[in-house]
Design a protein around this nucleic acid. Structure first.
Length: 391
DNA sequence: CTTCCTTTGAAGTCA
DNA sequence: TGACTTCAAAGGAAG
């Protein structure tokens, strides 16, 4: 795996993740036919642990909100598991959940302005609430290459196993309000077709090509000026990018732009605000984006913390191939992010959050807000998600 | 209004 | 190099 030359976690996650995954896969083979109920029981067991922990910790943040509502989901989860089996038999998630997989940034399911094809009522995958996402839409997928640089721990014929055929091109303007040709302007020039994932980055001239294509912005700074970005975080190509968060974005207002609202053109000129380029989403984040609405619908939950717990379990319950899709998507995202913002570093966003984890831990030692679940995990659970043992 | 919670993974930092 | 830290999304809840 060329891109795994360093770090090792580029594609399919950490090794320990995959070790656990292997275990789960083995378990899944055992229980493939009859054991979604067992899985649910495992969930139930886990939830009982949580609840008992909650009850034992009146201090806990979870307790302050009452027991985790997660158990409400078990019936629905079972149903979803069954549906998942159907999906896999029917060609996998691409077919069911990724109606436009090569162009993942489908309209936000929460947005009324959805331009999804009428035939699709699926939950879109990595759509952005604050803009369309060209990363996936421009992902260098060829019809057959989506997993071509297979992760070392994945079967090399994964793409064949998934049997997914992604259309090479679709009318992106149907998904994005792009000027005609804007996509084509980028995609071919990026030279992604059939290109090794990272092999070409240093030398293939992708960046050069990209720069030349985006000549008007070839010298744009890391954080493009608003004039270049456009009113809503548009990339100089004209394609909005979710990683570019315009200063006016509510979401970033929460974290980054508090107190910096423009109060006039003079101030804007005086203190031009740099749009925040956010980190590309990792595989799990992409998975969460896709599945969150589903879980919310099934569980009638809205609290993200609880939903994320469910999603974390489901993530571990995914098959290897299913996870691989998201790892691959995440890798593509990172790749394109790197192309779009060559000089961007995750460090750029360090310190944006108000509190540091260290401060949190210090507070927790002194009785700060800390969930019993977290404490339980640290004290009793070495792994983030204990394997689903038989009850 | 601000921060926390909660998850996994990527990337940064530090010894 | 390994351990640790921070951030990415999300929205309700608490301070």
């Amino acid at each position: 795996m060329p891109q795994l030359s360093s770090g090792g976690g580029d594609d399919l996650g950490a090794n320990d993740e995959m070790i656990a995954f292997k275990d789960e896969g083995e378990q899944e083979e055992k229980i493939q036919e009859n054991a979604f109920t067992e899985r649910d029981l495992a969930d139930l067991k886990s939830s009982l642990v949580n609840e008992s922990e909650i009850n034992q910790s009146p201090n806990a943040a979870a307790a302050r909100r009452g027991p985790q509502p997660e158990p409400r989901c078990y019936v629905e989860k079972h149903r979803e598991h069954l549906n998942g089996v159907t999906k896999q038999q029917d060609g996998g998630m691409y077919k069911t959940s990724y109606p436009g997989y090569p162009f993942l940034m489908l309209p936000d399911p929460y947005l009324q302005s959805s331009s999804m094809p009428p035939s699709s009522n699926k939950v879109s995958v990595v759509q952005q609430s604050h803009g369309m996402h060209p990363l996936s839409s421009l992902l260098p997928y060829g019809p057959n290459d989506h997993f071509s640089p297979s992760p070392p721990h994945l079967p090399t014929d994964m793409s064949q196993k998934t049997g997914v055929h992604r259309p090479q091109s679709q009318d992106l303007s149907g998904f994005y309000s792009l000027p005609p040709g804007s996509v084509g302007q980028i995609s071919p020039s990026m030279g992604w077709q059939g290109q090794p994932v990272y092999a070409g980055l240093p030398s293939c001239g992708f960046r050069q090509t990209y720069s030349s294509t985006l000549s008007a912005s070839s010298s744009y700074p890391r954080f493009p000026h608003s004039l270049m970005l456009g009113p809503s975080g548009m990339h100089p190509t004209g394609i909005p990018h979710p990683a570019i968060v315009p200063p006016s974005a509510k979401q970033e207002h929460d974290h980054y732009d508090r107190g910096l609202k423009p109060q006039g053109e003079a101030k804007r000129e005086k203190e031009p605000k740099k749009p925040v380029i956010k980190k590309p989403l990792n595989a799990f984040m992409l998975y969460m984006k896709e599945m969150r609405a589903k879980v919310i619908a099934e569980c009638t939950l809205k609290e993200s913390a609880a939903i994320n717990q469910i999603l974390g379990r489901r993530w571990h319950a995914l098959t290897r191939d299913e996870q691989a899709k998201y790892y691959e998507l995440a890798r593509k995202e990172r790749q394109l992010h790197m192309q779009l913002y060559p000089s961007w570093s995750a460090r750029d966003n360090y310190g944006k959050k108000k509190r540091r984890k260290r401060e949190k831990q210090q507070d927790s030692n002194t009785g700060g807000r800390r969930s019993a679940f977290a404490t339980f995990k640290e004290e009793a659970a070495p792994a983030p998600l204990p394997p689903m043992e038989a009850l």
